[in-house]
Design a binder for these strands. Structure first.
Length: 430
RNA sequence: GGAAGGGUGGCAGAGCGGACGAAUGCAACGGUCUUGAAAACCGUCGAGGUGAAAGCCUCCGGGGGUUCGAAUCCCCCUCCUUCCGCCA
């Protein structure tokens, strides 16, 4: 959520910044917020004044009653009653406006960072780095041009048909060494970041407020699984519970940056993408992911953003995959993000770049929603924290790229060295 | 799922219709004393909104109600503790 005070005091700059996203609706909402804010302050001043009068009269009533002046007290009560009625009306109007404002603010996306490249959409993302052969056709052999669903079936490590029998389309099941590989990927991701990140095992199902804090609600309600009976939500990423870990808390400045990581299942309805990438593991409703996240001061945030990216990238590289890093443009960054780098791996079997990690800096947007503050020793007041996070490893697409990339001419899949200890020493599948 | 008790400032804990944003203790901060520290003593000491400021308003788990006036009374919800039930 954007700071209302900033909208008030620096409207043109906020508007210009938001305009870079190319989202007309957001600009309309912003204008409306500014208008409502004006009204809101006026009306709440009126309300406060009425309350002050009622409070004052009530004190006098108390005094008169103690003094035994019943008639005088009753006269004042009469006055106070009339003011009270008016106060109730004004309060109702004020609450109405405050509610509208909050609703609009929750829908307005974050302001992009000045460093975020301009652009209308995906096509204008900036490739900042490429490691390995990429999608150069000359670099890939025939035996690597087999889609992972065929490899999986052939080796008995992927059982999509039965997953669909159990849970419907876009659910998956790994078997045997395929399941072990999935677990190994998560395990290595956790172990590689254990030097600086506290491992957390949060709940996978959360309250509405928890989903609002990260920005997944109310705007993206159609993307989330909801358990109606208990009014709980299945998390789309560990970012959701990890961000709420410090919700409504005041952190100690000395404890920042605070780094957390978690492996969880992630649930996505993929409502807007019906029919796209429906084969194999490219787009699924449930998957495992290791997320790394940090709470920071504004000063610490840029360096942490780089650190998270470096960590995510390091693992992809260590798995022997070819990848590129994209600096997402203003038209493509997520709603809550101010700046995002995506890591995409090239999967030769399906001949596609696959997004496997998204590393974002949310400035104070999520922290303001979640009311996460920090206090610096000796400094008066509390500051809103910054949040950042990224996928250290998301299983399905990495699994897919890995089996395609490391498929040998004989049809077996070579296991990268760093995974072997996590695969009970196995050096290949099949 | 059933029953009982409870949720008050950083912590502990009083208050149970009016002078309560809240006693008291601990912790913290500033000072006196001291070569320094401890102790002792004096003082400060929750958060948010609005305003140039004085001030005013809001917050005693959350929401609603009664009242001129609610931390205090009533209703609903939620969480915690204990007991019972069920259970990996």
């Amino acid at each position: 959520m954007i700071d209302v005070r900033r909208i008030r005091s620096d409207y043109d700059a906020v508007r210009a910044s938001l305009a870079r996203r190319g989202d007309e609706g957001a600009l309309r909402d912003l204008a409306q917020v500014a208008e409502l804010d004006e009204k809101s302050r006026q009306i709440s001043a009126e309300r406060d004044d009425l309350r002050a009068q009622v409070n004052g009269l009530s004190k006098e009533v108390g005094q008169l009653r103690r003094d035994g002046d019943t008639a005088g007290a009753e006269a004042l009560q009469e006055q106070s009653r009339a003011l009270g009625e008016r106060e109730r009306e004004v309060t109702a109007a004020s609450d109405e406006i405050a509610g509208q404002m909050r609703d609009l603010l929750l829908h307005i996306p974050n302001l992009p960072s000045p460093d975020c490249p301009d652009g209308k959409g995906e096509a204008e993302n900036v490739e900042v780095k490429r490691v390995g052969a990429g999608d150069d056709p000359a670099a890939w052999a025939e035996h690597q041009r087999v889609p992972h669903w065929d490899i999986g079936t052939e080796l008995g490590i992927l059982d999509l048909e039965r997953a669909v029998k159990m849970s419907g389309a876009m659910f998956t099941m790994f078997r045997g060494q395929g399941a072990t590989l999935s677990r190994a990927l998560c395990q290595v991701a956790l172990d590689r970041n254990a030097d600086a990140f506290e491992e957390v095992r949060p709940p996978t199902v959360v309250l509405t407020d928890t989903m609002i804090s990260t920005g997944h609600l109310p705007k993206f309600i159609d993307d989330a699984y909801h358990l109606e009976r208990d009014d709980l939500w299945a998390i789309p990423t560990a970012e959701v519970p990890l961000t709420s870990l410090a919700r409504d808390e005041i952190l100690r400045g000395a404890d920042l940056p605070m780094r957390l990581m978690a492996q969880t299942a992630c649930f996505r309805r993929e409502a807007g993408s019906a029919g796209r990438d429906t084969r194999g593991l490219l787009r699924v409703h449930e998957f495992d992911k290791v997320e790394i996240l940090a709470y920071a001061t504004p000063e610490q945030a840029p360096a942490l953003h780089e650190e998270l990216l470096a960590r995510a990238e390091g693992l992809i590289g260590a798995l022997g995959l070819t990848y590129r890093v994209l600096d997402l443009c203003t038209g493509d960054i997520g709603n809550s993000s101010a700046r995002t780098f995506d890591i995409e791996v090239y999967a030769p079997g399906v001949d596609q770049w696959l997004e496997v990690s998204s590393v974002s800096w949310f400035t104070d947007y999520q922290a303001r929603r979640a009311n996460i503050r920090y206090k610096v020793e000796g400094v008066k007041g509390n500051e809103i924290a910054h949040t950042l996070n990224g996928s250290a490893l998301a299983v399905p697409r990495v699994w897919a790229a890995l089996v395609e990339t490391h498929r040998q001419p004989d049809g077996t899949v070579r296991i990268p060295e760093i995974l072997q200890p996590y695969m009970r020493g196995a050096t290949s599948i099949g």
